[in-house]
Design a protein around this nucleic acid. Structure first.
Lengths: 240, 240
DNA sequence: CAGTGGTCTAGACCACAGA
DNA sequence: CTGTGGTCTAGACCACTGT
């Protein structure tokens, strides 16, 4: 379906990225934009709200709407802040090569902590997977993944070498909706050092994640340990 | 001013946090809520949008609105993900004690990189500040801060020992509006180890930040190096 | 004062899910 | 079919800014 606010959002975003609107310059007021896009002011406002949240523009009551200077993106793999995608998709979209090694793939009974995270019963069967993901021929991240067997059935080594998220969405027909992430720095373990080719003094950027389907079911609990020099995370915050 | 959508947002958020709505249960439909709060459906919808973005609820067209299981917050200092506050305010709101040591406080000429970040000219005067922030009597973060002297005038050691953000907002009358953050793990330097009381193998959680006023001017460029075991960052992502 | 964005209304039509 | 959320309208009044 064609969403008007999405069209307006994309158009203005493009114009900013292409320099048609300069940094700190004022853009048209909402009434003018509403006439131009042949829609109501509410719809324009919704589109501008999206751009405010992403840090493209800021609005001042009584004055107008202005272009905010965006920080340029670095020459690193960009993990989207507010979206949820598998690493396979992220790398492909950025034209990086990716391959995976399955280091461990087993069935286990959920312990208490894991059962709580995945909202299943203690002793319910879960996959325990450890994969090394190699991006651009460099070891990038060591991913430990737990998923409920009852929910995500039929995982094979073949699937683990490709995209698990693709399998969940396209083969199982489930919809991935959201994720909670906790980020921290951590001392590298011997395992990290071995597989990510790190010196003992080199740390890890750890991301702990619970991902949810569109019916609110947590389907994945994962701990990703990234090479500290190949991963960074960007965030935009607004004063409330 | 009393905002209706804010009242509705807060009420439902409280009800979820107090367990009045159980996890995965359905909440009232938008029309019913609109009647209950004596407002239009659009206003209810705006309130629910906020809750979706923060991961409290999810909505399914044709079915209803449901409570999503929130991850419990840890017994650590919580840095708000989508808001922007100084460390002084964050610690006080969480009833932590905070003190600061000013390790370095000098006037300098901006080099090319800094001039670009702060959108000033090369050789313009800037403050270069290094502070150790001590939370709950433990060294917590080493903060390197650069600010344009022309924009943020009158900084004193006294102000640095209290809240710079308070000074900017209350004394200078400027409005802090937003910030771009980049997060990464980093090997600790000898300086980090000395002031944060770290062993050489213990890493740093670094946050690089450019903060903006409400007129889009960048007023602060800072690099904060946190003890890896006292700082973590949480984020909620939605499939787009 | 006029011009701006912020909020809010009372509807409308649509897409989608389940009975 | 009904009930749900998603989008959209064409206004309205308000708060704030600069002239």
């Amino acid at each position: 379906m064609v969403l008007k606010y999405n069209i307006i959002y994309k158009k203005i975003k493009e114009d900013i990225e292409n320099g048609i609107y300069k940094v700190n310059s004022k853009i048209e007021d909402e009434k003018t934009l509403a006439k131009y896009f042949n829609c109501s002011r509410m719809t324009v406002s919704k589109a501008l709200d999206l751009l405010v949240q992403e840090g493209y523009i800021y609005r001042k009551r009584g004055q107008g709407t202005f272009v905010l200077s965006k920080v340029k993106q670095k020459n690193k793999l960009m993990v989207p802040e507010r979206d949820i995608k598998g690493l396979t998709k992220i790398t492909k979209e950025s034209n990086y090569s990716i391959s995976s090694k399955v280091l461990f793939f087993n069935l286990e009974f959920a312990d208490k902590k894991l059962a709580e995270k995945l909202q299943i019963k203690e002793q319910d069967p879960v996959y325990n997977i450890l994969r090394l993901r190699i991006v651009d021929n460099k070891p990038y991240v060591l991913e430990r993944t737990y998923m409920s067997v009852q929910l995500i059935s039929g995982i094979t080594e073949e699937i683990l070498l490709n995209s698990v998220y693709d399998y969940i969405e396209n083969t199982l027909g489930l919809k991935i909706a959201s994720a909670n992430k906790t980020l921290r720095a951590s001392i590298s373990t011997e395992e990290d050092q071995k597989f990510l080719n790190l010196k003992p003094v080199e740390p890890i950027f750890e991301v702990e994640q619970i991902a949810y389907l569109d019916d609110g079911t947590p389907f994945e609990y994962s701990i990703s340990r990234h090479r500290y020099d190949l991963f960074e995370f960007t965030s935009f915050a607004l004063k409330q």
